[in-house]
Amino acid sequence: MIAEINADVTTTDIFKLQRYFTFLSTAYQRKLEQVEDGAGDAHLYLDGVRDPARSRP
Score class of each variant (00 low, 15 high):
1 M>P: 08
1 M>C: 11
1 M>S: 04
3 A>G: 04
3 A>W: 06
3 A>E: 13
4 E>G: 00
4 E>I: 00
4 E>A: 03
4 E>N: 09
5 I>L: 13
5 I>Y: 12
5 I>M: 12
7 A>F: 03
7 A>N: 12
8 D>A: 06
8 D>L: 11
9 V>S: 09
9 V>L: 14
10 T>E: 13
11 T>P: 10
12 T>V: 11
12 T>R: 14
12 T>Y: 14
12 T>D: 15
12 T>K: 12
12 T>F: 13
12 T>Q: 15
13 D>A: 07
13 D>V: 00
13 D>M: 07
13 D>T: 00
14 I>V: 15
14 I>Y: 14
15 F>M: 11
15 F>V: 03
15 F>A: 09
16 K>I: 02
16 K>A: 14
16 K>V: 08
16 K>L: 10
16 K>S: 04
17 L>R: 10
17 L>P: 06
17 L>Y: 07
19 R>K: 10
20 Y>K: 10
21 F>P: 02
21 F>I: 05
21 F>D: 10
23 F>K: 06
23 F>T: 09
24 L>S: 02
25 S>M: 12
25 S>E: 15
26 T>R: 11
26 T>W: 04
26 T>G: 08
27 A>E: 15
27 A>M: 13
27 A>W: 03
27 A>G: 07
28 Y>Q: 10
28 Y>T: 00
28 Y>E: 12
29 Q>Y: 10
29 Q>N: 11
29 Q>D: 15
30 R>T: 01
30 R>D: 13
30 R>W: 06
30 R>C: 10
30 R>L: 14
30 R>P: 00
31 K>L: 15
32 L>R: 09
33 E>V: 02
33 E>A: 14
33 E>H: 03
34 Q>M: 07
34 Q>Y: 03
34 Q>W: 07
34 Q>V: 02
35 V>I: 15
36 E>P: 03
36 E>V: 01
37 D>G: 00
37 D>V: 05
38 G>M: 09
38 G>W: 03
39 A>C: 06
39 A>S: 08
40 G>N: 09
40 G>P: 01
41 D>F: 01
41 D>K: 03
41 D>W: 06
42 A>Q: 13
43 H>D: 14
43 H>M: 14
43 H>Q: 13
44 L>P: 02
44 L>T: 01
44 L>C: 02
45 Y>I: 00
45 Y>K: 04
45 Y>P: 01
46 L>K: 08
47 D>V: 04
47 D>L: 05
47 D>M: 06
49 V>P: 05
49 V>D: 09
49 V>H: 12
50 R>N: 05
50 R>D: 01
50 R>K: 15
51 D>Q: 03
51 D>T: 04
51 D>I: 00
52 P>C: 04
52 P>I: 00
53 A>T: 13
53 A>R: 05
54 R>H: 07
54 R>L: 10
54 R>A: 12
54 R>Q: 12
55 S>Q: 14
55 S>R: 12
55 S>P: 11
56 R>P: 00
56 R>D: 05
56 R>E: 04
57 P>C: 04
